[in-house]
C-alpha cells in the first residue's frame, strides 16, 4: 500500500531553539523522497514528526489525506527504520519481523509466513532462525527493512539507515533499497547527509538547512540548477565568483563577463564546467598545480586579473597545460545565484 504525505506549515521549537521554521512539503504516493542536509538541519526532526514521535509546535501532517498530527506512532500508516536498527536482540529474525503482525493480532502461523516472505524479499530467507548479533551490518539493515515493511505501511521512514555501513556496502545497499522500493511501491522518506547517496536513490531530493527547505526537485535539477548557494555547495564542489551588473554585461574580479544579471550575485561554476573551451570567457589564468584523478586532471588556476583567487577545474585527460603556463579559461553552464 502507499499514500501521499502533506506537511503543512509545520514549525518545531525546543525551548528557545527553533528546529523547523514553517515547513511546507508535498510528497506523492509511491515517491522515494530524500531529506538531505548537514547535521542539525532539522531533517531528523521532520522525520520524527512524520513518524509521530514528535508533535509539531504548529502545523499539520496529512497522510493519505487524513490529519495525523496528533495520532500515536502505532496508529499511523507509517513505520520507521531506525538509525541503529533497534532489532530486538533476544528474538530470532523471524520473531523480529513477525513482531508487527503479532501486535496486530495475527496468529502464529500467519505471522511467521509473513515474516519469512519479508525475509525472502530482502534475501535472508535462510537465516530466519538466527539472532541479530549473528549477522553482519548489512544483513541487520535488511532485517530492519523487512520488519518495517512487514506491517505493510503506506509510508516508510528511514533515518540514516546506511550511516553505519562502510562505503562499498553502502553503495550496494542503496541499489537494493531502490529496487525494493520499486517492488513494494510504498512511499519512502529517507534521511541522509550524504549527497551521493541522495542522488543515487531519490526520485526527489529535499535539501534542508537550519530548519528550512533550501531546495527541492529531482537530483538532476538540484545539481544543475540549484535554487540557492547553499544547495549548490552542498550538492558538490563549486567555484564562486562575486558579480554585479554593469551596462549590458556583468563586472567581476576577473574583469567584465558576458553575462546578464540585474542584481549583484554569485557566479557558480562546477569544476567540470571550467576548461580550455566553453561559452563564457573567464580571461587568462595561470595553472598553479594539477593532480591526476583517473578520469580527469584536477587543476588549480590563478586568474591573472585576480591573483588572490583560485579556480578549480577538472580538465579532460590529454588537455593538461604545463604547470605555470598561462591559458585562456572558459566556462559552460554558468549559474548566477543570489547570496543568501
Amino acid at each position: 500500500m502507499t499514500a501521499d504525505v502533506a506537511v503543512q506549515s509545520v514549525r518545531q521549537t525546543f525551548n528557545t531553539f527553533t528546529a523547523l521554521h514553517r515547513i511546507d512539503l508535498e510528497i506523492a504516493a509511491g515517491e522515494f523522497v530524500v531529506l538531505l542536509g548537514p547535521s542539525g538541519c532539522g531533517k531528523t526532526t521532520l522525520l520524527s514528526i512524520l513518524g509521530g514521535f514528535l508533535t509539531p509546535t504548529e502545523g499539520r501532517v496529512l497522510i493519505g489525506g487524513r490529519d495525523m498530527t496528533h495520532v500515536a506512532p502505532k496508529d499511523r500508516p507509517t513505520t520507521t527504520m531506525f538509525q541503529d536498527y533497534a532489532l530486538f536482540p533476544h528474538m530470532s529474525l523471524r520473531d523480529n519481523v513477525a513482531f508487527g503482525p503479532r501486535m496486530r493480532g495475527s496468529g502464529r502461523g500467519d505471522r511467521n509466513r509473513r515474516a519469512e516472505e519479508m525475509l525472502a524479499l530482502v534475501g535472508l530467507a535462510d537465516k530466519a532462525g538466527r539472532r541479530p548479533h549473528e549477522l553482519s551490518g548489512g544483513q541487520r539493515q535488511r532485517v530492519a527493512l523487512a520488519r518495517a515493511l512487514a506491517v505493510d505501511p503506506d509510508v516508510l521512514l528511514l533515518d540514516e539507515p546506511l550511516g553505519a555501513l562502510d562505503l562499498k556496502l553502502r553503495r550496494q545497499m542503496q541499489e537494493e533499497l531502490k529496487a525494493i522500493q520499486r517492488k513494494v511501491g510504498t512511499t519512502f522518506v529517507h534521511v541522509t547527509h550524504d549527497q551521493e547517496e541522495a542522488m543515487a536513490i531519490a526520485d526527489r531530493i529535499v535539501v534542508m538547512n537550519e530548519g528550512r527547505i533550501e531546495d527541492l526537485g529531482t537530483p538532476q535539477k538540484i545539481y544543475l540548477e540549484p535554487r540557492s548557494l547553499f544547495s549548490a555547495g552542498f550538492m558538490g564542489e563549486v567555484n564562486r565568483i562575486p558579480v554585479r551588473p554593469a551596462g549590458q554585461g556583468a563586472e567581476s574580479a576577473l574583469g567584465p563577463l558576458a553575462l546578464t544579471t540585474d542584481k549583484p550575485g554569485t557566479l557558480c561554476l562546477r569544476p567540470e564546467n571550467v576548461g580550455l573551451k566553453g561559452s563564457l570567457a573567464l580571461g587568462p589564468a595561470r595553472l598553479t598545480d594539477a593532480a591526476f584523478f583517473g578520469t580527469y586532471h584536477r587543476c588549480h588556476f590563478t586568474p591573472v586579473a585576480a591573483p588572490d583567487m583560485q579556480i578549480v577545474a577538472h580538465l579532460p585527460l590529454g588537455d593538461l597545460p604545463e604547470t605555470g603556463a598561462e591559458v585562456a579559461l572558459w566556462g559552460t553552464n554558468p549559474m548566477i545565484l543570489e547570496a543568501a
Binding site: P73, K74, T80, F88, M103, V151
Partner: peptide
C-alpha cells in the same frame, strides 16, 4: 538501552505494557 527499541516496538503497534 537505545530508546529506539521502545520506539520501534510502539511503532509496530505494541501497547505500553507490551
Amino acid at each position: 538501552l537505545s530508546p529506539n527499541y521502545a520506539r520501534a516496538a510502539a511503532d509496530l503497534g505494541a501497547s505500553g505494557w507490551q
